[in-house]
Structure formats: C-alpha cells, structure tokens
Design a protein around this nucleic acid. Sequence first.
DNA 1: AAAAGTATGTTGTTATAACAACAAAAAAGG
DNA 2: CCTTTTTTGTTGTTATAACAACATACTTTT
Lengths: 219, 219
Amino acid sequence: MEIDYSFLSNTLLFRGTTNDEIRAILQCLQATSKDYQKGDMIYHAGDTVDSIGLILHGSVHIESDDIWGNRSILDHIDNGQIFAETYALIPGETLMVNVVAAKDCQILFLNIGKFIKTCSSNCDFHTKVIRNLLMIAARKNLNLSQRIFHTASKSIRGRLTSYLSQQAKINGSYQFTIPFNRQQLADYLGIDRSAMSNELSKMQKEGILSVQKNTFHIF
Amino acid sequence: MEIDYSFLSNTLLFRGTTNDEIRAILQCLQATSKDYQKGDMIYHAGDTVDSIGLILHGSVHIESDDIWGNRSILDHIDNGQIFAETYALIPGETLMVNVVAAKDCQILFLNIGKFIKTCSSNCDFHTKVIRNLLMIAARKNLNLSQRIFHTASKSIRGRLTSYLSQQAKINGSYQFTIPFNRQQLADYLGIDRSAMSNELSKMQKEGILSVQKNTFHIF
DNA sequence: AAAAGTATGTTGTTATAACAACAAAAAAGG
DNA sequence: CCTTTTTTGTTGTTATAACAACATACTTTT
C-alpha cells in the first residue's frame, strides 16, 4: 500500500504526527485500504464495526432508509475525514445507518476498537491519535447538539431564526453565506422545502431579512 | 477539599485509575469544588468555559430558554457524571444552554481545556483520563445521533415507532420499560404530549401495542 | 383518610405544515 | 446559443399536529 504521508499528516486524525509516527500508528491500527465505486455500500445498517474509515479519495454519504424505503442523506463526509468512529469505539453497537460511496473512493480502514482496548504501548504518538480523536468527537458532538437545538422549535419560522441567528453569530456579521441549498437546509432543519421557501418569502415581505441564493442578510 | 477517592474511581471519567493517580490528576486539572443550591445557575448560555463539571452530590439540568422565555429541559445529569465537556474541549465555543442545579449540589470543576492543550507530562494516567473522556464523548455522540434519528420522521406515529423499536431491540424483548414519563417522552421526541397520548391510544386500539404506565408491549 | 398536587387520557378547534402540482429562474451540457 | 436539467418560488388543498380545556387516575402530603 502506497501511503501519502503529507496527506495524512494534514488530516484531523493525524494532525501533529511525524511520518515515522504515522507509519507506526498504521501498523498498530492494522491499516488496510480498499477501493469503492460510486454507489457501493461501505457499511450496512445493522453491522457492528471495529474500524473507522478515513477517506483517502472521494467522499461518502451517511444514509438512512426508513421502513417505507425513503432514503435520506444524514451526512456527507469528505476527503481526509473519518466516519463510523462512534461505532468503532463502542463495542457491539450496531450501525443505524448505511455508509455509501458518494463518488468513486478509496477508504483507509483503521482498527480503532482493538487499539483503544488492547494496544499496550502507551507511547507519545498513541496519545496524539487519541487526543485527536477526542477533539473530532467533541466537534461532532457540538454539531449534533446544534442541530438538535435548531430543530427544537415546532414552527418553521422558529427553526429558521434559530439557524440563521447562529450563522450570523458565527460569521460575525448580519450578512453571511450558508453552505446549503434550499433542499439541504430544509433537510437539515427537518422541514418541507416548499413550506420553507414560502416562510422565507414571508419573512422578506415582513422586512426581517433578504436572501439571494445562499446569501442571507438579516435586518 | 475532602476527596472521596472511591466515589471518583467509580465515575466514567476516572474509571481504571488508582487513588494516587486521581490525586495527581486533580492537581493537573486544577480541581476546585463549589456548592450550589437548587435553582442556582452554574453555567450561563453565552459563557465560554474551560472546565468540565463533575457532580459530586446532587444533579443538574441542561436548560434552554428561547426568545419567548419558554424554558425547556434538554438533559438531566446525575451524580458522578460530567457536563460541559464539549465546550471545555473546544476553545472559545460559547454555551448554547444554561446549566442549573436541579437539587442542592456540589460540583468539582476540572480544567480540561488547559490540560488537553498544555499539560506536557504524558504519563500513563493522563492517557487514561483522555481515553475515558473519549469513551464518554463517543457515548454522548451515539445518544445525540439516536435522538436525531428518532425525530427524523415528521409524524408522531413515525417518531414513536422509531423510538419504541429501538427500545425493544435494546431490551431484547417486545416488552420493556422506558425511562421517561409521558411528558419527558414527548419532549425527547419533540412532540406535544396530549397528541402523543392520543396517538398511543390509537395504536392500542389498532392492536399494535399495549401500554401500562412506562411499560410497553409491542405485538 | 382526606386533600392537594401530578400525570395521563380525551375531545374539539384551530393553526400550520406537508403535500402536490406547476411556473419561473438558474445552472449545466452539448 | 439553444436545450435540458436542476433549483427555487408560488399557490391551493388536505392532513395532522398543536393547543386548550377538562376529566380521570394516580401520587404524595399531612
């Protein structure tokens, strides 16, 4: 397996490690890589896993199929990011979701479950990876909490204002651009797209905000 | 400060550490304890924090006040558990919620932010605490993901079946008892209590399930 | 045991969001 | 540049959940 160390050392997981350390860690983590074609299922709902996936090339979707067969995309994971770390860390916990290749991709699998539990060599670089994992988990936690927060209101208006207020705060400006199109924003907030469009129109008529494409201006 | 080492060594954060190690860790984490009376605000929304709280006695609520002053309880943290770890780990991130004493309580504050960033002594017991923190974060992650999952459906029926199916699976039985009363379940699923009661009645009439208090039986 | 306080179920009304269907605008492709 | 596809906005209808108000059951207190 050809390893691109400079790529890995720029990922959140390996941040702050040297090439030598990465080499050692990959050994510990029993790293293997595998290629997938767009649409391939990488992990199935119901699987138990002990390896996280790190995306070397391409991207994946975290998807959920409900009982009626409706597929919804819960998350998009890009190049350099990891997935399934929660499930790899908690032994025996079954995946609620599918992981599907969004593009052709190459995944590096790292057996983190075994690593956490049994790898005895408590060297410096072990701690680095665990710290990095902790920071990734904390960040993910924050994102999940925020989403729950923004969907707490029962009205479309309430959810929009919650989300948009936060975006304004993050950007430090009443004018900002969001990383979603309308459908994605509606999915994120758990509401119907057309109803949301309608509400945004009303808010513009009321003079609360203005929108051009993904750029919002709150008054 | 009197430290109850046997209590601490039974918490998830200090699991697997000896009394001597706990003593050293508390030093590193600049541990201080403080007493609060029921209703006291421990952390305010908008604060930035670098210390996590570990509950020595009592319990706290994670609360949110919306713009209209409606207070909703997002989480209940008990004796031995920690709070604010996400915010302590991510520098500069402001709290979205209030932490309020649910009972008279004693909180041990641990400066984890500084610890993660600057504490240089990478000893065995440091790694233990970080590992424990990672496991706590992963578990929290899973809980948040599951809540998002159960609130993904737009109908009350859908949310109930999602939640109840999972409970049945966790308990390995079609008969199980949930840790919520009706109001708490409704809050968790983000729906109106009376509407939920109504839906549960319908489901019972349809012969899908039966309920007595918090005990469900799915057919 | 009575009284007060909570929790739960029931019902009817109302507001609102989902849904469907389409038009208009924007982006992508040839 | 024209065609096709995708995205967004608009409208009307319908289903449904929120809400309010109350009755009943269950707890807790004294």
